[in-house]
């Protein structure tokens, strides 16, 4: 049990973080909070990939003098992939915020119930 706990603990934390996303999006009624839940979900995926790239005994993936061999550096591929994913998450958030500004200007509120009420008037 101890063994299992130490081996998979970080995965569990990541999965909790990941599932906070859909939960928050359904449970919270404020649109900004929904957006934040979405961001939490994306960050969870990013951390998941970065954890995959780690190696015991590895250092930064930048070549250093007198340090050769695969086992001395951590895996650079997830880092490169996640740079892309971070940018994507940032862009999505940007577009979402622009949409929220429009919604706020039109309906004067970001609470979902209130907004739906004003929308159907």
């Amino acid at each position: 049990m101890q063994e299992l706990f130490s081996q998979y603990f970080i995965y569990w934390l990541i999965l909790i973080l990941f599932m906070i996303g859909p939960f928050g999006m359904i449970y919270k009624k404020n649109l900004v909070k929904k957006l934040m839940a979405m961001n939490v979900m994306q960050v969870a995926v990013i951390i998941f990939f970065l954890v995959l790239g780690q190696k015991t005994g590895g250092t930064l993936p930048i070549e250093m003098h007198g340090l050769a061999g695969v086992e001395n550096y951590i895996n650079p591929l997830p880092h490169a992939l996640m740079l892309t994913a971070i940018v994507v998450s940032l862009s999505t958030t940007g577009v979402a915020l622009a949409l929220l500004i429009l919604i706020q200007r039109r309906y004067g509120t970001l609470e979902e119930d209130e907004m739906l009420r004003r929308m159907n008037q």
Binding site: F18, G21, P22, M25, L31, K34, L35, M38, M41, Q42, A44, V45, F48, A85, T92, V95, A96, L99, L100, L102, I103, R106, M115, M119
Partner: peptide, 21 residues
């Protein structure tokens, strides 16, 4: 359409995150 797009954005990003995971 703004509201519809915002909903689509939230749900669609969830879909993309699931795919990425």
């Amino acid at each position: 359409a703004t509201v519809a797009a915002f909903r689509y954005l939230l749900i669609g990003t969830v879909g993309a995150s699931f795919y990425l995971l």
